Amino acid sequence: MSTLVEADSPRLGGESREHIELLLTSDAALPPILVHRQTMRVIDGMHRLRVAVLRGEPAIPARFFDGGDTDAFILAVSANVAHGLPLSLADRTAAAERIVTHSPHLSDRSIASFAGLSPKTVAAVRRRTNPDRPQLNARVGRDGRVRPVDSGDGRRRAARLIEEDPDTPLRDVAKAAGISLGTAHDVRERLRSGRDPVPAHGRQGCTGGGRAGHATPYRPAGPCPLGDLTPHPDRDATLRKLRQDPSLRFSGTGRLLLRLLGAQTLDKENVTKLIDNVPPHRVDAVAALALEFARAWHEFAVRLRSRIGDPL
């Protein structure tokens, strides 16, 4: 037991002396502790380890976990939520903040299941913890599948598939559209009742939207409007001037911006070649990503112009 390292505990107040004393009064054999093999850090079972030491026992049963530090912490939180001395609400909330910070790719429902919180609470924790961090477009759910945060595009793909062949099994529709089986079922029911396949709160101003709480007749969705953007008269010359600006060239963030702007350059010839070379089975995915990137740059432009009081 001398090789063990104290736990990276999710308990803000540390170990509970009362719980240790309670375990000492029991004659029952202690369940195995859980140890991170790479670091020999106790993941779950510090109270049991303390009891074994106080009893003078030379060894304690243990199970080993092989994985990264973040995964080990998530496992520690899950274990302490599921059994033993329950974590307090403050402990669970702090644990969720740490998981959101180090694993932003995990969905709110997934983190909620680990920390013993509701998905709404985790969503609030995410907004509070990382207010300035760009949010990912997709997250990993409890089943390990990657799903978009905004399922609007997936719902519209599912609607097209169902309209083309109403007899297609929903499981196949869900897989092809990149949505859950439950979402595919909801899309089918909405189409049957003549409603938009995307709920009002998820339309974000796209074609087919309506007021929340009102059933809107379904129309096949078109592209989301991006606002009236005036094309720049000399894009290449502007890029050259930006690249020569020392305030951008000699800062890391400035160089990143220049690289991103340069990567967006598309002429008519390249556009035609790219379009012609997208395989038919990937058209929806590429188009959805292009729209998402366009929306992101539009939001960037709006926020940038608002700094000088000249909104788009």
Rank of each mutant, 00 (worst) to 15 (best):
A7Q: 08
D8Q: 13
S9C: 10
E15A: 14
H19W: 14
E21A: 10
D27R: 15
P31E: 02
L34N: 04
M46W: 09
H47D: 09
R48V: 04
L49C: 03
L49W: 12
V51H: 12
V53W: 12
P61L: 14
R63V: 12
F64I: 03
D69W: 07
L75D: 02
V77I: 11
P86K: 11
S88M: 09
A90Q: 14
R92V: 03
E97R: 15
I99M: 08
V100G: 01
L106Q: 02
L106P: 00
R109A: 15
R109K: 15
R109Q: 14
V122W: 04
V125D: 00
L136V: 02
A138T: 06
R139E: 02
S151Y: 02
G152D: 02
R156G: 00
R157Q: 10
R157S: 04
L161R: 02
I162N: 00
D167I: 08
T168I: 12
A174N: 03
A176Q: 13
G178K: 07
G178M: 07
I179R: 01
L181V: 13
G182V: 15
H185V: 11
V187H: 03
R192C: 03
S193H: 06
R195Q: 06
D196A: 04
P199D: 03
H201W: 07
G205R: 03
G205F: 08
T216S: 00
P217C: 00
Y218F: 12
P220Y: 10
G222V: 09
L229K: 03
T230Y: 07
T230I: 12
P233Q: 11
D245P: 02
S247G: 07
R255H: 04
L256N: 08
L257A: 10
L261R: 03
L261E: 00
Q264R: 12
K268R: 10
N270R: 14
D276S: 14
P279R: 01
H281D: 15
V283A: 08
D284I: 10
R303E: 05
L304D: 04
L304H: 11
